[in-house]
Design a protein around this nucleic acid. Structure first.
Lengths: 420, 420
DNA sequence: CGCATTTGTTGTACGAATGAACTATTACCC
DNA sequence: GGGTAATAGTTCATTCGTACAACAAATGCG
């Protein structure tokens, strides 16, 4: 992760205390015997989970570098905890005792993703294999809604879904609530969600989900996590900027398969990068923000549609007005160059060369991509030395629900010792 | 570091292989017995190094959570390795056996910082206490210079300094070479350094420093590391954006006392963030880059001085043209608002709320700060919820030299087991 | 059918941290 | 001045987890 060996500068004792005041102060990083066990359990679990085809105990041993004997005891614990399942031994062509393939246990421990967005409420349950076990998504117009009412409805939805999977013998390891706004994950408070009309509230208790471990996060951040699963054919990039275009425009930064959140998780506000200070005034008070060019309403207006039209109307309009791409005629979407310009700033400031376009941009990509790529090639300083990649999101609808559930499961995977 | 518990998503087995193909594939993260020892050695070393006043063995034990017995053996090893020194036992008011204070060992293991910049060459040696043990800085006009000649001269300088400290019984743990350009720390190659007129070269062998471990890095990144030492009175912030203004404008990102480098370490190119697309053409081909407003030459021109004037001339000019600050008259430096605008984009994209201004900006801060702060307050979305802080760099002249030496010492501190 | 081969398990050895007991050295109080 | 409490540092048996080697299990192949 750190290509400058020896430049990383993390402070052991002192920061560990300041980062989370809630943890007990006894030995934040002291490594004991059981630390070894925890770490190696995680290592073995990841080896089982993050490999294209099942490994045997011996395979895990050679993949991790641990001794076969050690792997055996660790795997036995994971199997006993229900996190790993043994498939029937397969006698595969080769000589020797047949190997027992190990796979993530389906439908045992599951994660719950929750989301309130402008036009829907949803709850989705994923198991350790990444399959959707259960979900409910309810459309609704939630701008300027009452958080108490909406969150109670979402809580009922969550209980419904959650009770269902619990009845089938699964354990819900926790939940993540995705919200379109500035959330502070340390305190669990929502500062402001402009498009919902919500501000300064503590959403988790309003869900009424009892003692289930529910944490909140920004919607774009969780959607980016969903991207890490990759598409059916294409693998997910290890590092990328995820940009989600809708009424507002949000982004998330993933480096080496890990979210980069800045100090408070309030980064990625690309919608208010200035594209042209002589441009139209933005709701944020500045002039010429990206949102004024590539936000949903601006794109609708530019296409001569009412600002609150559905995305499908814009797609239809673009499809009939020319070939599927700007090469076929006039630049179909002025948003393209503006988006490219803001992304060029982003790439120059961050050095992440893959850009994943999500939300409305996924469907609009054919009309955006050429302009974005061209502006990036012109404006990114490292462009001569780097392959810039602009691609469509793969995670499917309500990506934040999937990402939230995945985040819960990643936490399980990061500390399987808590489950044995 | 990660305020979204459970959102971090690091992949154990698979990425470890892709990140560095050079490492052997046997057990990247397998934790064995000696892993415990290494980790706890680091923990103890950091406890000794990163605490305002000396700790005793017992103090380290309570600070780290390790048992006194364990700490004793670990400290003994560090003392034997020359990384830690015992001061005379101090009988401080309190009852009980007097404690033996432990401090970083002065003048034992040292780090070497090297730098080629536009107007000087330098080598600086720091010991584990952070003191400068030895240095040589040679002014020179090095734009469009011959890398072979310049690097041979720097190599001679480095050998000179290095031989001196070695003769005094110190061990040089390694070196970092700071260069003002795009460097790839993985390969050790310099892609391009526009202001030196260098491109596509492998600088380390040209130094001729034998088998000394020399690694290269970007100048602004190393200067940012120097900031982490803090000033004489003010403590360094844990997270900040370091902006170094000179002919070009570079930046580095530090989050939780760790450099954030992006995919290749080529981030922080704030000099080419677009401030106004209707602005003057930049050398990079785009229009209205920050460098055209807040680069050294642009600032000189705006003040009516020849573009290659010295910084002192600009300061003199500003001082006599009004009071020390824009409040005293006309906006002294048009660079201020441009810098504020680019920084607002930076903060919106990254969520790091402290900005440290280095290079020429340090001296110009009185004429810049008010404009920068005002624009930031207007344009940063999270401004109502965050205290934005704009401050001057503390690290002193040739900060990259200090930062380079510190980077070497941090590597020692991160793996003291290699020295016992 | 015997042998090589690979997987998985069992038992011993070793390394590292722990906690309790012990020594060393001071302050304080009578 | 001596006893006692307090704190620092050390010694040693214990515990825990991994490594290594030997062994058992199960298969393919000649």
């Amino acid at each position: 992760m750190n290509y400058y060996p020896g430049l990383g500068y993390s402070q052991g004792v002192t920061t560990a205390g300041t980062a989370r005041e809630t943890t007990t102060r006894t030995g934040p990083g002291a490594a004991r015997q059981h630390t070894l066990r925890e770490r190696n359990l995680e290592l073995v679990a990841r080896a089982v989970y993050e490999v294209p085809e099942p490994l045997s105990r011996a395979g895990v041993a050679s993949a991790t570098g641990l001794a076969r004997a050690t792997v055996s005891t660790l795997v036995d614990q994971l199997v006993a905890a229900g996190l790993v399942r043994e498939l029937p031994a397969v006698t595969g062509g080769r000589a020797g005792r047949p190997a027992v393939p190990l796979v993530p246990a389906p439908r045992s421990v599951v994660g719950l993703g929750l989301e309130v967005n402008v036009d829907y409420l949803g709850a989705r349950v994923l198991d350790l294999t990444g399959e959707v076990v259960s979900e409910q998504v309810v459309p609704g117009a939630l701008h300027d809604s009452d958080p108490t009412v909406v969150l109670r409805r979402l809580g009922a939805l969550a209980r419904d879904v959650s009770d269902g999977v619990a009845a089938a013998g699964m354990t819900v390891a926790g939940a993540r609530l995705a919200l379109p706004g500035l959330v502070d994950p340390r305190t669990g408070l929502l500062e402001v969600a402009p498009n919902l009309g919500w501000s300064s509230l503590d959403p988790v208790p309003l869900l009424g989900l009892g003692d289930l471990d529910v944490r909140i996060a920004n919607e774009a951040k969780l959607a980016a996590l969903a991207e890490l699963a990759g598409g059916s054919d294409v693998a997910a990039p290890d590092s990328f900027i995820f940009v989600s275009g809708d009424v507002g425009i949000g982004a998330a930064i993933v480096v080496d398969r890990e979210l980069f959140l800045g100090e408070r998780g309030w980064n990625g506000e690309i919608g208010h990068v200035v594209v042209d200070p002589a441009g139209p005034r933005c709701s944020c008070g500045a002039f010429g923000c990206l949102e004024q060019y590539a936000g949903k309403e601006a794109m609708m207006r530019a296409a001569g549609l009412p600002p609150d039209s559905a995305l499908s109307a814009l797609v239809a309009c673009l499809t009939e007005s020319g070939t599927a791409g700007p090469a076929g005629g006039r630049a179909a979407l002025p948003a393209g160059r503006a988006l490219g310009s803001a992304l060029a700033d982003f790439v120059n400031l961050l050095d992440v060369s893959t850009i994943v376009l999500g939300g409305a941009y996924t469907e609009l990509l054919p009309w955006l991509r050429a302009d974005v790529v061209e502006v990036l090639a012109d404006r990114v300083l490292s462009a001569p030395f780097v392959d810039l990649d602009v691609r469509a999101a793969q995670a499917g609808p309500q990506a934040a629900l999937t990402g939230g559930a995945r985040a819960v499961l990643q936490a399980v995977l990061a500390d399987p010792a808590a489950w044995v």
